[in-house]
Structure formats: structure tokens, C-alpha cells
């Protein structure tokens, strides 16, 4: 399930980023050479959303501020400088909401999977989650994680 879920998150990121944010994204393959470290000064915004249904867990999304600014302007269709943090966080939450909704609908088209409200969080380490996917864009790197809850006994 973990592999299937992260694959569907990947597909949804492609669709949502291209359709709503006009961004071309490319998944980083494990065989790719490691990216140069992000500048230390680069601020990254993180967001998470919980889901529940036949299985439950959390999807995380992390996006550098510079890329988030581009996404927000593309989303709104105009230059919004100076861009408020509220707008950028709203864009991040909406992006994750659409990615999660799209993912869960594709995973199970018939039964209902409940989605929580997206929350701004801190960056999550790949060691603390089940699967991670990384995507390159011209303006920065997008990171997505999934973590499934243990089934209740």
C-alpha cells in the first residue's frame, strides 16, 4: 500500500502542479546525482494533512518559499508583490489539499476517505516517514512524504 500510495501522490503532484500552478515537475530518481544542498538561508514551508478510511495516515508537502511565491502568482494569475505569508501558506495548503484529494480518489473511487484540514508544520525527516518522493522544478525542489498509521488491533 505504501508504494501504491506514494506513486499516486506522485501522479497527483504532476497533475495538480501542471493544471493549477502551470509548473513542469520532474521526479528525482534514486539514480540521479544528489542535488546541491539548498542555500542555508532558503526558507522552506511545510504542510501536512491527515486522512482516514479503509486505511489512515498523513501526507506531507514541503516547498521552498521562492517556489511557493511563483506557485501563488501562477495560481492567482497575477504578480502579487509584495506577497503576504498568509497567501503563500494558503497556496501551500490548497496545493496539498488538491494533491491529497486527488490521490485518495484515485486509490479508492468507490468508498469515502475522509480528509482533514491542512496544517502548516515543520519539516519532516525522511527517516520519520514511510515513503518520500522528491521533484525538481526550475524554481526549487518539492518534497512529499507519506506516513501510514498502524492498523488498530
Amino acid at each position: 500500500m505504501k508504494k501504491r500510495l506514494i506513486q499516486q501522490v506522485t501522479n497527483s503532484i504532476f497533475e495538480v502542479m501542471e493544471t493549477m500552478f502551470f509548473l513542469t515537475v520532474e521526479e528525482q530518481q534514486k539514480s540521479d546525482p544528489p542535488l546541491q544542498a539548498q542555500p542555508v538561508s532558503e526558507e522552506i514551508k511545510a504542510c501536512s494533512i491527515k486522512f482516514s478510511g479503509s486505511f489512515s495516515g498523513t501526507i506531507f508537502l514541503e516547498i521552498p518559499m521562492e517556489l511557493l511565491k511563483t506557485m501563488t502568482e501562477n495560481f492567482m494569475g497575477q504578480d502579487l508583490s509584495p506577497l503576504s505569508e498568509e497567501y503563500m501558506e494558503g497556496t501551500l495548503k490548497e496545493a496539498l489539499n488538491m494533491i491529497a484529494g486527488n490521490t485518495l480518489t484515485q486509490i479508492d473511487k468507490t468508498s469515502y476517505m475522509g480528509l482533514g484540514i491542512p496544517d502548516i508544520t515543520t519539516i519532516t525527516s525522511p527517516e520519520d516517514v514511510d515513503e518520500t518522493a522528491i521533484f525538481n522544478t526550475e524554481n526549487g525542489t518539492i518534497t512529499a512524504h507519506i506516513k501510514l498509521n498502524e492498523p488498530e488491533q
Binding site: 497533475e15 495538480v16 493544471t19 493549477m20 489539499n97 488538491m98 491529497a100 484529494g101 486527488n102 485518495l104 480518489t105 479508492d108 473511487k109 468507490t110 468508498s111 469515502y112 476517505m113 480528509l115
Partner: peptide, 25 residues
């Protein structure tokens, strides 16, 4: 207008009185 796309949820919206449904994007 929502990301919720399951048929079960769409049916529930309509049953409760929604006049229409649009899925994001």
C-alpha cells in the same frame, strides 16, 4: 467545489440538496 471525488460523497452532496458539483482542478 472540492477535491472530494468519491462517488459516495458526490451522491451525498446531491442527496442533501446541492444543485451541482465541480471537482478541483
Amino acid at each position: 467545489v472540492t477535491t472530494e471525488g468519491s462517488q459516495e460523497k458526490i451522491d451525498e452532496f446531491i442527496e442533501q440538496g446541492a444543485s451541482g458539483y465541480i471537482k478541483k482542478p
